[in-house]
Amino acid sequence: MTALDHLILAAPDLERTVAWLEDGLGIRLAPGGSHPTAGTRNFLLGLGDSAYLEVLGPDTGQSVPPAQLPFGLGRPGHPRLCTWALRVTDVDARVAAARAAGHDPGEPATMSRVDPRGGVVSGRITPPRAFEDGGLLPFLVDWGTTPHPARDLPRAELAALHGYHPAPDPVRHALRAVEADLTLRRGSRPALVATVRTPDGELTLL
């Protein structure tokens, strides 16, 4: 089984992006923690059904050169919805099934971060395909025995999630191979688009 796990909003200016989201949605985001050696940290917002938004930015407490930060975080720019993740219960089996269906999600590797309470959040993920095909192809995450990061988060509603691509058929094939349920429409350029809503506001992320 697969399900939406989380969306990643890449934020070169993390504090400013978090403030923009909190002001637009009328809700406080939760500090997620730091990714050791990656040079990043995050803030989280629950989206219901054990899904969440990860706002990812540079961690100034780590000495990682800007050029080595993932998702283009070392370059000035606007926040951008760069990729998304599917939650699976056996990542190795899902990778094998996807490869048999004609799409290779990549080799799973262990990822971890330290949460604000000093605990370790760990899972196995396939390589995120940030910005490739507009971030439309998700990576896979298997949390194993780690409690899911969406528990106890402030919550908003994921009102819509869809994508655009000028040549959508090959992307649809790859999405089917990993059992990803994403509405894909023909558009002038690849893009992943999400609408997040609370009673106090609504924002579209792309």
Rank of each mutant, 00 (worst) to 15 (best):
L29R: 03
G118D: 04
T89W: 05
A93F: 05
V88R: 00
I125H: 04
H162F: 07
G32V: 03
T60A: 09
P12H: 01
G46R: 10
L14W: 00
R185F: 09
V196I: 15
M1A: 14
P108L: 09
G187H: 10
M1W: 08
G187A: 13
R185E: 12
L47D: 09
S122M: 14
L81D: 00
L21H: 05
P147Q: 09
P138S: 07
A30P: 09
P138M: 10
D23I: 01
H165P: 06
L86D: 00
S63V: 15
R185G: 03
T145A: 14
P168Q: 14
Y52Q: 08
G102Q: 10
E157R: 15
D152N: 14
G135P: 03
A67G: 08
R16G: 05
R80M: 12
A174N: 08
A167W: 12
T40E: 03
G72C: 00
H165L: 05
P65G: 08
E22W: 06
P168N: 15
D181N: 13
P65K: 12
G74I: 02
G144Q: 09
A167E: 15
E22G: 05
A11P: 01
P170S: 13
G123R: 12
A93Y: 05
R197Y: 07
D92H: 12
H173G: 11
V141R: 01
L7I: 01
G119W: 10
R186I: 08
S122F: 04
P147F: 08
H173M: 12
A38G: 02
L69K: 02
H103L: 13
T145R: 12
A11M: 09
